[in-house]
Amino acid sequence: MKFDSFADFIDMGGYGFFVWLAYGVTFGCLGILILHSLSQKKKVLTEIAKKMTREDRLKESRGKKS
């Protein structure tokens, strides 16, 4: 380990602000990207399911008229 203490590690030889800003924003962005990517599948499938129920309703009302 290259640091003597935890405070030393946070301080990053005086560059703590810049180093942790870079790492914070990077992993923040990656986290948002990962969550967004994972949520897509559910969103798409829910939309298709909604479309299917809409189609079923249309078919039913058409059937009544004739």
């Binding site: 990207l33 990962i34 990517s37 798409v44 499938l45 829910t46 939309e47 298709i48 299917m52 129920t53």
Partner: peptide, 29 residues
């Protein structure tokens, strides 16, 4: 990995008329 995740969602979105996708959608609903 992220490309694969997004690719799978994109395949589903573009093939909403196919039976196997509709089955998955039913299961989700």
């Amino acid at each position: 990995a992220l490309t694969l995740v997004r690719f799978r969602a994109e395949v589903l979105a573009r093939n909403g008329m196919r039976p196997w996708v509709r089955e998955l959608a039913n299961a989700e609903a």
